[in-house]
Each structure stands twice: as structure tokens, then as C-alpha cells.
Amino acid sequence: MKHDETAGMAHPLEDLVRMDRIPHIWCPGCGIGSVFTSCLTAVKQTNIPYNQFTMVSGIGCSGRGAGYINIDSFHTTHGRAIPFASGIKMARPDLNVIVFSGDGDLFAIGGNHFIHAARRNMDLTVICVNNLTYGMTGGQVAATTPFKARSSTTALGNPDTPFNLPLLAYASGATYVARWTMLHARDLADCIQEAILRRGFSFIEVLSPCPINYGRRNREKTLETLKKYHDNTIVKNGASPTELEVDFNKGVILGKFIDIEKPTCDEVYRRMYRPPEETTENRKSR
């Protein structure tokens, strides 16, 4: 029996996972766990000590991410992961602050916070798991649900146009913008690692299936969604944010679109507001 050989062996990410909370709540066929695994892999790949990281989530399925990473982690209120993370970052600029949350949390109820953190170039790594719906509450229409797609509150199809998230991020001032699907796990992990290691507001959209509450209503099994991620996507680094709407019929563009260097919010604040001697003193004490 093959599985007997694994007795006493451990998955390489177990030191970063709260194993006493596994199995997690994510459904069979849900992609959030895959995005989370890529994220943890990225954290590990940086070789930065774990206590120099913190993770903040909002509410929703993806918002449970913070509950499973074995570092100081925060599961906050709906939509408010970014301002919570901003408070941490401004008080402790040396920490690597990762925001792991969903599309509904970050872009509907939390949209205002997103655009302002991007505008300020707050040094955060924002990972948005985009499953096109409100999964936890049962599949209601979201700000990312495709036009005409069915949801529990749009039985006849979504009458609204969804956000183009990378365009929104770019227009708001994000200095790093990328998109992958959970199937592009290696690219995604490397992308998250790069985002962690750079300074500035980094936004990574990750398309991920919700088979139970989105797929079921739109006649799409989880492996069919993954097939679309495989067949109907094209990697085009540096693509213009204006051409990044999510339309699998036309083909969805993935890659790293924006990577600009710009002083971060905490850097500029320190330089402009802290008296010089104070800054030196702070550096010494760190």
C-alpha cells in the first residue's frame, strides 16, 4: 500500500499551517485552498523568518485564509482587511503584511479602502481570490460576476457589468498588478513571492472556481472551470490594463501587467514628517 509509506511523514507546508484546524472549511473542488497553498509556498520561498510576516483577511470564504496560516493572523470585519493591514504597516513598516481575501470583500464592501491604499502605495501584498460570487452566503451576485451569469439573487442573469480588477487597481495607483488563475500555481507562487519581496502596493488577482455556489448555477463543474483556465487564457506580461476584462469566450489575459517603483506610504511619511534624528534612533532600535 502506497499510503503506508507516508506514515510519520509531513507535507512540507505543515510548519506554516495551523494543522490543528485542518481540514479547512473550503468545499471539495473549491480553488481557495490552492491559492492559499501557492501563497504559503511563496512565503516559504522568500526565506524570511515567519515572525516577520502577518496576514490579514476580511470576511467570506477566502477571508478564512488568515485562520489557517500559522503566524500572527487577523480575521477582521467584512471589507476592512486593508485598513486593518494599513494600521499594522504604518505602525510596523518592517513587517511583511499580506492581505488574503475575496472579491466581494475587497471590491464591493471594501472597494473604497482598496483604492485608497493603492493610491497611497501602502506597502501591502493584496491577494484577491476571485471566484466571481459571494460563496459563503450562498452564491449571490458580486461586483465581479460576469454579465448575464446566474446567481441566487440574479436568477435571470446578472444585469450588471463586472469590474476589471487590474484596471481598477492600476487606475487607483497600484505599483504592481498581476493576474493568474489557481491552476497557474507555480507562476502564482513566484508572483506572490516577488510581490512580498518588493516594496509598494502589490495586487494579485487569482481566478478560482466556486463549484458549489457559482458553478452549479452556471452549469460548470470544477474541472470544466479549470479547463477554461487552461485552454481559454493567454499569458501576456505587460498587457494594457484596459484589455483585461474576464471573458473566457474572448480569452482571459494573465501575467504581470504593472511593476513600477515608487516610494511607499510609510517611507514618504518618515522622510517628510519624522525629524531626522528620530528616524536614525528608530533604525538603531530595530
Binding site: R18, Y50, N51, Q52, T54, A66, G67, N70, I71, D72, S73, F74, H75, T76, T77, I88, R92, L95
Partner: peptide, 11 residues
């Protein structure tokens, strides 16, 4: 944060 206690804080 960073003291090494790995706390999880939730609402």
C-alpha cells in the same frame, strides 16, 4: 505581532 506567539485573532 512578531513576538512569536502566532496568535489568531478573529471576530
Amino acid at each position: 505581532i512578531g513576538d512569536g506567539y502566532n496568535v489568531h485573532v478573529t471576530g
